[in-house]
Computed example of a mutant assay.
Amino acid sequence: MELLFLAHRVPFPPDRGDRIRSYHILRHLAARARVHLVAFSEGAGEVAPPELAGLASVTLIPRTRSQAVAALAALTKGLPVSLTAFASAGMRRAVAARRADAVYCFSGQMAQYLPAGVPAVMDFVDVDSAKFAGFAEQGSPPMRWMMRREARLLGAFERRVAARVDASLFVSAAEAALFREGGATGRIVPVENGIDAAAFAPAAVTDVAAEGALLVFTGQMDYRPNVEAVRWFAQDVLPALRRRYPTLRLAIVGRAPTAAVQALASPAVIVTGAVADVRPWLAAATVCVAPLRLARGIQNKVLEAMAMARPVVATAAAAEGIDHAGTLRVADDADAQVAAIAALLDDPAQATALGAAARARVIERYDWTARLAPLDALLGL
């Protein structure tokens, strides 16, 4: 089979949420079909990683349109910014040049390039329109209007795409249900994220990043929900914990920290920026935290921490997509976060047992091979 794989970002390295999912799916499909990857690059300087050469033919189209230009085009044309930001004549030509028996389209921004008359699976991952609706609830008046507009227009586009493709995929059953509740029709299927439990294993790490009581948060640190999460935690949760544990520190581990994140750096807060390997930081964590107020689907940061046998304290939003069966602690407000984390800091045996249960749950429930098996039938592989 000739399979066209469309992606809004090069699916390598698998070091952030979207790339983790797209890379493992690409690898799964490449073992079963001849895959042609057509993706956007982050500017003209990005080249195809050699690690992808054995998986697919690779065509990269530079994405150079600024957010301001995309917003102006969206307002002029009555379109969502999410689409105009990824509008490209070069991408249209690249897709048209590839013959395909089927298409796997990763991320809603790429749905505008689905070729007519070719069987297609659309991987929305999350309900992006719902994410913008959530942003609208939190924004100031001008931004609130823009986010509501984006949620409305993008939601209508998502529903049109779902009605024409062979299947629409989401990262969790909760996201799939949310999409249906919003009026979407067609075949809507949850295909969950997995974890490479052999790579994310305590025994795989020899260098531990830090010593002493340490809380660790991992993620892309220019992503708004991550930024808001660490700011809230550092301001509303960490001070109360530090009064009880004066040497306790928080490590914010992830690339591209915004100015707001960098401003959190202090003797109590480590801001690492990009790291070559997140696993030593997870191994060093006394507790991993996921205090996201707005989260969609399955949080890879939580799966990775669980796989590393670390105790995790997460908000309900961050834990919702994961079938954790009680192997992490859920706490929403600041007082609940303080109590949950303090209980683990005070009882190392409980923390160790919770981490061991979390790793066992990940191995049982989130192996990539099992998670991606439904793709074979959906694409006729």
Rank of each mutant, 00 (worst) to 15 (best):
P141N: 04
A305S: 15
L264V: 09
L154H: 03
V269R: 03
L83H: 12
G182C: 09
F86N: 09
A173L: 12
T59A: 12
P374Y: 05
Q109C: 08
A96Y: 10
L292V: 00
A39R: 06
V191E: 09
V312R: 00
C105H: 05
A209F: 08
A316R: 15
R65M: 13
G139H: 14
G134Y: 10
A203D: 13
D332S: 12
V81D: 04
A340K: 05
R160A: 15
A87T: 13
A305W: 06
A44Y: 10
A357N: 14
G326Y: 09
A373E: 14
G380E: 00
V253K: 01
P311S: 07
A360Y: 13
F12V: 00
L37V: 04
V289T: 07
E175I: 01
A213R: 13
T218N: 07
G183M: 08
V165A: 05
S266R: 05
L52Q: 02
L345W: 02
A176E: 00
A56T: 12
A7G: 09
A356D: 01
R159P: 12
A284I: 11
M308V: 01
M91T: 03
A377Y: 11
R93L: 12
P202F: 11
G194Y: 10
P225K: 00
G321F: 02
R310Y: 03
S266N: 07
A251Y: 00
P374W: 01
F217M: 09
D126M: 03
A156E: 11
D367V: 10
C105G: 01
G219K: 12
C288V: 12
A136M: 11
A176Y: 06
Q337I: 10
E137Q: 13
R296C: 07
L83N: 05
P141A: 04
G273H: 05
A44P: 15
A177F: 05
Q299E: 12
A176W: 03
A71S: 06
Q235H: 11
R224F: 15
G321D: 01
L328M: 13
A136S: 13
M306C: 05
F124M: 04
I25M: 11
L238M: 08
D367H: 11
D346R: 13
A174H: 14
W281M: 00
G326L: 13
V205G: 02
V313F: 09
D123A: 08
Q220F: 14
A97W: 03
G182E: 09
Q235M: 07
A229K: 07
A256S: 15
D347N: 13
P62A: 04
M91L: 11
P374K: 05
A210M: 14
G45K: 01
P14E: 10
L282N: 02
G273E: 08
D335Y: 11
A331D: 03
F233C: 04
A74F: 08
V35F: 01
L215A: 08
A317R: 09
A111L: 11
L303F: 15
A33M: 07
R144W: 04
P13T: 03
D277E: 06
Q262P: 02
L3W: 08
V171P: 14
L3G: 10
R255N: 09
D335P: 15
V191L: 13
I341G: 12
A74Y: 02
Q112D: 04
Y104C: 00
V312T: 04
A213S: 12
V118P: 00
A370T: 15
V38D: 00
V118E: 07
S57E: 13
E211D: 14
